[in-house]
Simulated assay, not measured.
Amino acid sequence: MLRRRMLTMLGIVLVVVLLLGGYKAWSIYQQVRMFSAPKPPVAVAVATASERAWQARLPAVGSLKALQGVNLSLEIAGTVRAIQFESGQQVKAGQPLLQLDSDVETALLGTAQADLGLAQLDYGRGAQLVDSRAISKGEFDRLNAVLLKNKATVAQLKASLAKKNIVAPFSGTIGIRRVDVGDYLASGTVIATLQDLSSLYVDFYVAEQAIPQLHVGQPVLVTVAAYPGQTFEGTISALNPKVDDSTRNILIRATLANPQGKLLPGMFANLQVVLPQPHNQVVVPEGAVAYTLYGNSVYVVGEKKDEQGKPVTGADNKPVLVAERRFVDTGERRDGLVIVSKGLSAGEQVVTGGQLKLTSGAAVSVSPDATLKAH
């Protein structure tokens, strides 16, 4: 009886084990089928690598400076009597701008001119008397010295009086005035800034290796943050004859017209020096290139080949397309395009959208990238 019960229990256990083993085997079989089944192609956007004449440019940054610009300041101290300009006004060369109190200098000039008149009379009489030897030659020399001294005094007072009136040294735009009528100003006080904005300089530095590519008259493209998307054209007007021995950079100056007065001195400028002799380069959209520490790469779309090198076709009798990851050497980037100097040929298709879902050799279905602009 006991033996029979044990045999029954062993039979039940065996049946359970067989059932569990069968279920596990069926589960593994389903997983194998699932993983061995071909994956559906990944939908990606593509663009064609093209070859075009590429005008190389040398990037740099610089600062704008006025063609002529000064801070108007006083050479001598005095009290402001009159201000003859408005802030932001356009002024002409020689136009009076500010007048200081000059009563003392005017009075002193009158006294000096009276002394000069008397010295001239004494000198005239002495010239007549010295010929008749009524006075000595030494006395005549003294009269001549007095005359010259009085002339110098008058000239000195006239120069001092002229400095009481500030005039515009050149035509331009005057800035915000910093003084008021009645202020006592010490020597060197700045009253306003004067800038000639008809043209501007832009000074920038480039590495000494770029010197052979630069020359006077070379075009320069300038952009500033104040006017995004707008480019101002200029030309190189001077190259510094000395390289900075601490940075090994050379100072370059370009000149650009500013007829509308949009650009102002002191603005930060981004520049691109247009280099001569354009070359044909293979370019692709920037979005096609993946930048990593291990190198830059693109996914190239092509037909899948069998062992004999023949295209593999799918169920629809169309060639199966796969994406191959390829490492490339890239160069200058501009206007949404990047140069590929090595690793890619013109006419090859590269993936511009959907790279995150790809692995090398993955099947893909392609569609044009609607986000790309026509170049």
Rank of each mutant, 00 (worst) to 15 (best):
H215L: 10
A192C: 05
I236M: 11
V179L: 01
A210Q: 14
V202F: 09
E233L: 07
D183V: 11
R253E: 10
G229S: 06
G229Y: 02
G188C: 09
P169K: 07
S187F: 12
L194R: 13
A238V: 02
V243N: 02
P219E: 00
R248P: 06
T247P: 03
S171V: 01
R178L: 11
T223A: 12
Q195G: 08
T235I: 09
A207F: 05
V222L: 15
I191R: 12
L200P: 07
D180I: 04
I174W: 02
S237D: 12
G188K: 13
P228G: 02
I236L: 10
E208K: 01
F204T: 13
G175D: 04
K242Q: 15
A168W: 02
L239Q: 09
A257C: 10
D196P: 13
Q218P: 02
Y227M: 00
L256W: 08
V216T: 01
L256F: 10
D203R: 12
Y227V: 00
F204S: 14
S187E: 13
T231G: 11
F204I: 12
Q213V: 02
R178I: 07
S198D: 14
P169G: 08
V179Q: 01
S199L: 08
V222Q: 12
A210T: 08
A207N: 06
A225C: 00
Y227I: 00
G217Y: 10
V216I: 06
R178F: 03
G217P: 07
T173E: 10
H215N: 15
V222W: 05
R248H: 15
G172N: 02
S199D: 13
T173R: 07
L256M: 09
Q209F: 07
Q213E: 10
L221R: 11
F232C: 07
V179C: 01
V167T: 01
Y205F: 13
D183H: 11
P169C: 02
A257R: 15
F232L: 13
L197R: 08
F170N: 03
A186E: 11
S237N: 07
Q230W: 04
A257E: 15
P241A: 09
